[in-house]
Amino acid sequence: MLSDRTTALLSSIATYLLLGFVSFLSVFPFLWMAIGATNTSIDVINGKPTFGSALMTNITGFFTQVDVPLVFWNTAKIAIVSTILTLAISSLAGYGFEMFRSRVRERIYQFMLLTLFIPFAALMIPLFIIMGRAGLINTHIAVMLPVIASAFMIFYFRQSTKAFPSELRDAAKVDGLKEWQIFLFIYVPVMRSTYAAAFIIVFMLSWNNYLWPLIVLQSNDTKTITLVISSLASAYYPDYGVVLVGTVIATLPTLLVFFLMQKQFVQGMLGSVK
C-alpha cells in the first residue's frame, strides 16, 4: 500500500514538474511580449528584461497610426463568418463521407486529401486570377472563399465521426428522424467538444491568416490586423514598442475565443458522449 502511494506521489510530482516546465516555456515569450509592450523601441532592441513606463505612449502610438476599430471589425468579420461556414460545410462533409460510404465518394475523399499537399504559394497566382475574373479582388468574400471548404477540417470531422456512437443514429432512425434531423439534433450536440476544438483552430488560423489576405486585399479600409502589424514592423526604423502593443492587441481575441471555448470542452468532457 505504502509503496503504491509513494509511486503515485512520485508520478504526480513528475507530472507537475513536466507540466510546469512545459508551461513555463510556452508562456515565457508572452511575458516577453508584455514586457516589450511597456518599453520604448530602443529598450526592446537592447533586450531590456524589465517592465518599462512607455506602455501608454506605445498604445497611443498604435491607436493614432492604426484605425483600430475598422481593422478589428474587418478581421473579426472575416474570422467569424469563415469559421462558422467552415465548421458547417466541413462537418456536413465529414459526416457524409463517414456515414454514407460508397466507392466513388471514397475515391473522391482520397483525391481531396491530396489537395492538402499542395503548398499554398503554388496556388496563389491561379486563385488570384480566378478572383480577378470574378471581380472579387479587394473584397472580404475573396479572402473567405478559398478557406471555407477545408479538406483539412473535413478530414478532422471524418476522423472524429468515427468515435460517434452509431447506436445513437440507429435509435434516432427507429424514432423516424430524417438524416438532416439526425445530423442537426443529435450529431451536432453530441460532438460539441469536437466543434469547440475545431472552432478554436479555424478561428485562430483565420484570424492570423497572412499570405492570402495580403494578396487579395488592396486598400486601407479592407485590411486585417496582421497586415497592419506587418507593415508597422517593416519600417526603416520600426517602433518595436508600438509593434508589440499591436501584437498584444492582435493576440487578445484568439486568447478570448480559447478561454470562452474551454468551457465547452469541459461540458463536452462532463459527458454527453454516452
Partner: peptide, 17 residues
C-alpha cells in the same frame, strides 16, 4: 491553456519575439 497558448500568436509577434 498555457501549453496551448503558443499557437494563437500571430506570425509577426512570434518572429519579433
Amino acid at each position: 491553456t498555457a501549453i496551448f497558448l503558443p499557437c494563437v500568436t500571430s506570425l509577426v509577434a512570434y518572429s519579433v519575439l
